[in-house]
Amino acid sequence: MGAGSADTPPVVSLISGGIAGGVEALVTYPFEFVKTRVQLHSESRSKPPRNPFKIISQVYYKEGLRALYKGCGALAVGSVGKDAVRFLSFDTVKNVFKDPATGMLSPGRNMLSGMTAGIFASVFAVTPTERIKTALIDDARYAKRYQSTLHCIKTILREDGMMGLYRGFAGTTMKQASATSFRMGSYNILKDFQEVNNIKQNAVVNFVNGSAAGIITTLCTQPFDCIKTRSQSAKATTTIEAIASIVKDDGIRGFWRGTIMRLGRTIFSGGVLFTTAEAIAKIMNPIFKPLSTGEAKM
């Protein structure tokens, strides 16, 4: 499963995924910030540096530490909801698809479980929070219309209604479905392989597996991330318009803009996410398993 053993109760999946998502978002947000800025950058005369640490230092010295966490609140809240839904739905679907004899899934079914989880996460958590986060980061570059996260939400709702929070839904869902498929699927494929070969699971192994899943996910899904970012900017566009603007600015290579920045985050974030989720699940499973199986003493 996403965290813990194959028969982890749904409440454990929900809570461990939510906590892990919040921790991962807070720890790695500066990399998300610079990745988003690079993807929004469209001035061909002054290309941004490729080194994420250089951009982080530039923003820090010019705009201060608070600037690096602009939009972090929206992403952190969204990450709690996203990963709670993602882990819960992944584990639920996985339990339906698993082999009754071994409790494991084929690689294809692991990937399909992740894709399903990504769609649920996009609908119920990711699209609105990503829209707010991206609009805040984009707005901070020039217009500076939004006074706070709450003011940004009120402005979007006033100008575009509820649909304004779902700008870029198609691109976000494509990204979430593919990213969750690769991230959750590849992590669990590695974990199943290790269990078959009697490789003991611990924090180090969990972190390495999560980092490997992060690399695979980034390289395979970067175009969807670029489309999502462009369509959710302060000057929001449709998914088709976002694709056209990327091609116009940079050609096909533009779909992989921000890859290095995103890798800087996902290698670390993948390790943090799964290590945290596994640790929380280990603590909570002994509490909730008896309740879910009816073994608790009355």
Rank of each mutant, 00 (worst) to 15 (best):
L136Q: 04
S13P: 03
A3G: 08
P9V: 09
D225Q: 07
T149C: 11
E159N: 14
K98P: 02
S79V: 00
T239R: 00
R158N: 12
N202I: 07
A212L: 14
T36G: 01
T266G: 04
K98W: 08
S186K: 05
V205Y: 13
P30M: 05
G164A: 06
I137C: 02
D225T: 03
T221G: 04
R131D: 01
I132Q: 10
F268M: 15
I252W: 08
K144N: 15
V77D: 05
I246P: 05
S245V: 06
I287E: 05
L68Q: 08
S231Y: 09
S5M: 11
L75Q: 13
T28Q: 00
V85F: 10
D160A: 13
S211M: 15
D225Y: 10
G2Q: 00
H41E: 12
F268T: 13
Y142Q: 11
P10E: 05
L68A: 08
L26C: 09
T92C: 08
F31E: 03
S148P: 08
S89P: 05
G210R: 08
W256S: 12
I55G: 00
T28W: 07
K248D: 11
N285G: 06
D249T: 08
K35Q: 11
A140Y: 01
R253H: 07
Y187K: 13
L26Y: 03
D139S: 09
L14D: 05
V196F: 02
K200N: 09
V85N: 05
L26I: 12
V247L: 15
A179F: 09
G254I: 00
Y146I: 06
G258E: 02
T134S: 05
E130M: 13
K289D: 06
Y142M: 06
T239K: 02
Y187E: 00
T28A: 12
C226G: 01
S5Q: 13
Q194G: 15
A170P: 00
I280L: 07
P223S: 07
G294L: 09
F224W: 09
K282V: 07
G114T: 11
Q147A: 14
S231D: 04
L88P: 05
M163G: 13
A76N: 02
V77F: 13
K54Q: 15
D225L: 09
A234G: 10
L65V: 12
N285H: 14
G103Y: 06
A177G: 10
L68N: 10
Y60C: 07
L136M: 15
G2F: 15
I153R: 14
L165E: 04
L112G: 00
K200Y: 10
D91C: 08
L105S: 07
A3S: 11
I287W: 12
A125S: 15
A277H: 01
L88T: 15
C72Q: 14
T221L: 03
K94H: 11
A140W: 10
N95A: 14
S16P: 06
L68D: 08
T92K: 04
G103N: 07
R45C: 06
C152M: 11
F90T: 03
T276C: 13
